[in-house]
Each structure stands twice: as structure tokens, then as C-alpha cells.
Amino acid sequence: MTPQVLGSLVDEQTRCIHYRTTLDVVAIKFHCCLEYYPCHQCHQEHADHDAATWPVEEQGAPAILCGVCREELTIRTYLDVTSCPNCRTPFNPGCRLHVHHYFEV
């Protein structure tokens, strides 16, 4: 079953009102609630709690959803690639600037 993505979505590929370029095709499962959101701003606006980052020792957890093929990636895999290993869709390189919102680094 494909995980549900919460937040202010604008399309089926997990783009949201905050990040909606052709490369913005990932959703992140938040450690605090284990729910997928397209971005930290969507979590802040829609969740009823503060966000918690994934600890370094849990980088093997599946917590990234490719919005194109719906493949779930581990955090470590996501941090090591620039595109989806399953469908080869490129990911937004600018997302690297925001990893501290989601993962301990």
C-alpha cells in the first residue's frame, strides 16, 4: 500500500505549495509521528506537534518516498544519491540545504 502524504499538496508527485519545481518529488517521513509530509513547512503547518529529526543511528529506516514511482528509500540511500535508484527521477539538489530539518547530520 502506498503511504499517504499529508500537507499542502499540489499534485500526485508530492509537490507542495512551498516546493513545487519539477525536481521536488520526495516526501519525508517525520520521526516524531511517522507520517509523510512533502516538507518541513507542511509538517509545521499541519501537524499538532513539533518536528523531531531522525537520529544518525536510524539512517537505515525507510523514510523517503519518491513521488514519481512511490518507492520508499532509506535515509542513508537518499543521502547518498541524487536521483531515485528505482525510476532514476532526479531529486532537487537544493534539498541538501534542509537536511537538518529531518535528519541528524
Results as ranks from 00 to 15, higher is better:
Met1Leu: 13
Arg20Trp: 08
Pro38Asn: 12
Gly67Glu: 02
His49Leu: 10
His101Asp: 13
Pro3Leu: 06
Ala27Thr: 10
Tyr102Glu: 09
Met1Gly: 14
Val56Pro: 00
Val68Ile: 15
Val68Thr: 03
Thr77Lys: 00
Arg70Glu: 02
His49Asn: 11
Val68Asn: 00
Gly94Tyr: 03
Pro62Ser: 15
Thr2Leu: 00
Gly94His: 02
Cys32Val: 04
Val56Gln: 13
Val105Gln: 05
Thr89Arg: 08
Gly94Leu: 06
Cys42Leu: 13
Pro85Ser: 07
Asp50Gly: 10
Glu104Val: 04
Asp11Gly: 00
Ile75Trp: 01
Pro85Gln: 11
Tyr36Ala: 00
Gln4His: 14
Leu65Val: 03
Thr77Cys: 00
Thr74Met: 06
Tyr37Trp: 11
His46Phe: 06
Cys42Phe: 11
Thr53Arg: 09
Thr22Cys: 08
Met1Ala: 08
Cys32Tyr: 00
Arg88Asp: 10
Lys29Asn: 13
His98Gln: 14
Val99Met: 14
Cys42Arg: 11
Gly60Met: 07
His40Pro: 05
Gly60Ser: 04
Arg20Asn: 15
Met1Glu: 07
Glu104Pro: 00
Thr2Val: 09
Ala61Lys: 07
Tyr78Pro: 04
Leu6His: 12
Cys32Phe: 02
Leu97Thr: 13
Trp54Glu: 06
Ala47Arg: 01
Glu71Tyr: 06
